[in-house]
Computed example of a mutant assay.
Amino acid sequence: MAAPAASVARPKVDLYSDTVTRPTAGMRKAIAEAEVGNEQAHEDPTANRLQEMVAELLGKPAAVFLPSGTMCNEIAYRVWCGQGDEIILDATGHALHFEAGGPAALAGAMTRTIAGRRGIFTGADVDAAIRPKTRHAPRQKLVSIENTANLGGGAVWPLETVKDVAAAAKRHGLRLHMDGARLLNAVVASGIPAATYAADCDSVWIDLSKGLGCPIGGVLAGSSDFIEEAWRFKHQFGGALRQSGIVAAAGVYALEHHVARLADDHARARRFAEGIAQVKGVQVAADEIETNMVYFTVDGTGMDAAAFSKRLMAEHGVRIGALGARLRAVTHLDVDDAGIAAAVAAVEAVAGA
């Protein structure tokens, strides 16, 4: 008989991602008490309420609850693009690197990248990416932006830049989509309402399972016609649910209780960055921390990012992921002030060993 698999040690401080959050006691209670019905017939009152809340939050006529943020992006791309059409996005875009080739596999779309700064580009960059309209070139249909920009270090898009990009898209007859996985982090950091950010976007979504702390889901919003098509592709992509109010209840609870507290995550990210900035061999742009992400390098310690990450976990129980040459620490509602202090101490210890 094969030996049982060894259990995986749980980190003492988990800064791997804000997707590792666990439902709070209040959220679990809301899940347990959720009123449910047949989502596909629009009879689930909790799912309906969540969709209405997000549509109002984003200033759009309609919204649809989906199992994941990736599905939100890919359904939007499928609605806006036909096979062989092209999406313009930043070279660091989530859909390009972390969605398993979804734009090609699910929407049949090509991508044309812009080398922005910290994941943010301008209307002039869009203008420069426009192809001549000939039968030899792919048809460009969509500009996709990511707010906040993950690989840009959780950078917040300035509202005027969103408007500039929207104007460029309109000039060229393109739609504008916002990957708003961490849009509410941008809202809390900037003080700009979500609906204001979304006003010039043809489609936009928010994730529930990152900073909001839900176990599952995202909500995609847009015009009534857009959402009607999105429902069709939700079914086609295998995302149709039944009594989805069970998980939608977590989203309702999060929107009512977990948005303002994102400011705590941002403050802790800055505190972590300021702490490790004092460590010899660690490089971090502490003055660029806007939201809940801290990217840093450890070249000066004589270790690469992967080795440093492994030692943090093995020796101190602090999990911080390595992405290429950088490490990424992400704060969230399961990491308190003591956790941040422990993480800084762990970085100091590994760097000085």
Rank of each mutant, 00 (worst) to 15 (best):
D225V: 08
A107H: 12
R270C: 02
Q140E: 13
I289H: 02
C201R: 12
T113S: 01
G275I: 04
A346I: 04
K310F: 15
E315R: 15
H257R: 13
W205S: 07
H235Y: 14
E229Q: 01
A124V: 04
V165S: 08
G191M: 01
I87V: 13
V247W: 00
S190H: 09
A194T: 04
I206S: 06
P193M: 03
V294F: 08
A254N: 04
G239I: 04
E99C: 11
S244R: 05
V188N: 01
G352K: 05
G108M: 07
H257P: 03
I114H: 13
D179Q: 05
K29G: 03
R10E: 02
R175C: 11
K60H: 07
Q278I: 10
I130Q: 10
I340T: 07
G153Q: 07
F272E: 03
A329L: 01
V344C: 06
V330E: 12
S17W: 08
G154V: 01
A277E: 12
A109N: 06
A341Q: 01
E256H: 09
V284R: 07
A267Q: 05
L184Q: 02
G108T: 07
T70D: 14
G217L: 03
P158Y: 00
H332E: 08
G123P: 09
A169I: 10
G222S: 07
I87Q: 05
E33I: 11
R131M: 07
V156E: 07
K280A: 10
E99S: 15
A47N: 10
Q283A: 10
I289F: 04
E160Y: 08
A346V: 14
G275A: 00
G26K: 11
G218L: 05
W231G: 05
G251I: 15
M27E: 10
V13H: 04
V252L: 13
G218I: 09
H332T: 03
R271V: 10
D44L: 02
T331L: 05
Q283D: 13
P4T: 00
T24V: 09
R28D: 06
I227V: 12
Y197I: 00
K133E: 07
M110V: 13
A105T: 08
D264N: 13
R271S: 14
A345F: 00
A149G: 15
R10I: 09
F98Q: 13
R117W: 00
H316N: 15
A341V: 15
I340E: 15
